[in-house]
Nucleic acid binder design. Sequence first.
RNA 1: GUUUCGGUAGCUCAGUUGGAUAGAGCAACGGCCUUCUAAGCCGUCGGUCGGGGGUUCGAAUCCCUCCCGGAACGCCA
Length: 543
Amino acid sequence: MMEQDLRNMLEKTLEKLEVKDQAIEIEVPNDRSHGDFSTNIAMKLARVLRKAPLRIAEDIVALLPKNKAFKDIAIAPPGFINFYIDKAIYYSVISEINTQREMYGTSTIGSGEHYNIEFVSANPTGSLHIGHARGAAAGDSLARILKKAGYKVTKEFYVNDGGNQIHNLTLSINARYQALFNQSVDMPEDGYYGKEIIALAESIKASHGDRFVKEDGYRFFRQYGVDYLLARLKSDLLAFGVTFDIWFSEAKLYENNTVEATINTLKEKGFTYEKDGAVWLKTSDFNDEKDRVIIKSDGTYTYLTPDIAYHQEKLSRGYTKLIDILGGDHHGYVPRLQAATEMLTGKRGVLEVDLLQMVKVVRDGEELKMSKRSGKAITLVDLITEVGKDPIRYFFAMRSLNTHMELDLDLALKETNENPVFYAQYAHARIASVMRQASEKGIHVNTLIDHFDTFDSEKIDTLLTVLVDYKNVIEEAAQKRIPHKITQYIHRLAQALHSFYAEEKVLSDNERATKERLALLYAVKIVLKDALSLVGVDAKESM
RNA sequence: GUUUCGGUAGCUCAGUUGGAUAGAGCAACGGCCUUCUAAGCCGUCGGUCGGGGGUUCGAAUCCCUCCCGGAACGCCA
């Protein structure tokens, strides 16, 4: 709000100087001694007006309309204009937060938008591993942030239950099952060797005995295996704080003839041709490096085909944008998928793909290589049981999606301050503790105080500026889709709190001072908890 | 070879629609608990922003070139 006032003031001033079409940049300086807001407009105009930036800055300041909220306006070389806000203006944020509670910081920048975010989408052929964990954390955090920013969001998981991998899963289950009765059946090529498949086989043995030693169990194994593993995926994700609005089955695409219909649409629009007995899609006309086969010469589909149909199905539901969160190893797959959605919609940019780079796992200073064949991999469940949900959620949220990241298990396993999540949770617990003691002393916390006579420290000013900044942070994190903006904010707020806490006692003999500070802490607690919830981390009442 | 992500402090990472002395955590070092939780606070140390050119009043950020590492380049999924 202050920023908007400032923008209007500057626009009027530029009109007086007869400057047109000049975008005004207003930023919050990193160094607060440079003011609460700052603009580089004078430097931008140097070339246009052919005048020294400092002189232009002087002219602007002289012509600025008066506004008592800006206590001080200063010019700094090489030409910045810095604005200092009367701190008393900031005090109103306290009752604002305490009134709006978890609605504080909510934005409307996303209104009218309905995003569909597809993430994880792991095949139901085994346990979720560390890469899926990163995807789950990223997708879920993004969804929460977008909602906070006013977007409508649907979270979706695509279940690949129609392809060849399920066939291999079924054969793998059979091999494991037969082995329990000393029958030697070879694992299929590209079989699944995870220990969860052995557990699955044992569970079949427990319920059905040796029935499938004599009788063919293919159909049963297939259905049982998918159901069993899908149920595990759901419960593992739930333990990680991640839920989905829609679990979409690939098999449904065939039942509803969506695949066939989509192929026909593409054919009718003239985007296909036949060559070497196969049907190709002209994706190279839409930024792909070459055309792609959608129907192989043996008549079956490639992986791409049902996936295009799946995106067509999502598009038909009326979202304003589709977001896929994929592993970075799929980057080559992105152009063909975007080409297909452009063919179907006639529009570019309907599908956006956020790529996650690999997670390198380190233990004892050495990289842990994942082996698919032996089923040796760090699973999500392992991480949750060994380290806990919160540190892992926080750790993943801290990194930008696009960066290669390293997960040091020795470090993650430590329950020390090396895990940054404790720092934030501790801040929240400290406030909770003060609140408890206040109530024991019979102090009533009036959260709606709007007069603050006893605030006289820089620590409080810092705390207030961070609280005021919350909405801006939400909006930037949502628009740029960068969850780590939120963890940075959490750290900033926790730091301001700890620093304040160390400097002065909240519960003092001065009744007025005590009440004012309790109202402030109450507001900090609300925002801290809300920000943590955006990255799927619980706030603790005590530690 | 092509595409793509990355190379910023000892380590892990922010910062890249050009802007003020390049930031944070951890590690290291020095202080602070008879007072609301020391999982904390206060301070110090620490960087040729991979190398080299160029554009600009101003470059970690934009352009060119080279070097190093991850990943992908199927009528697999």
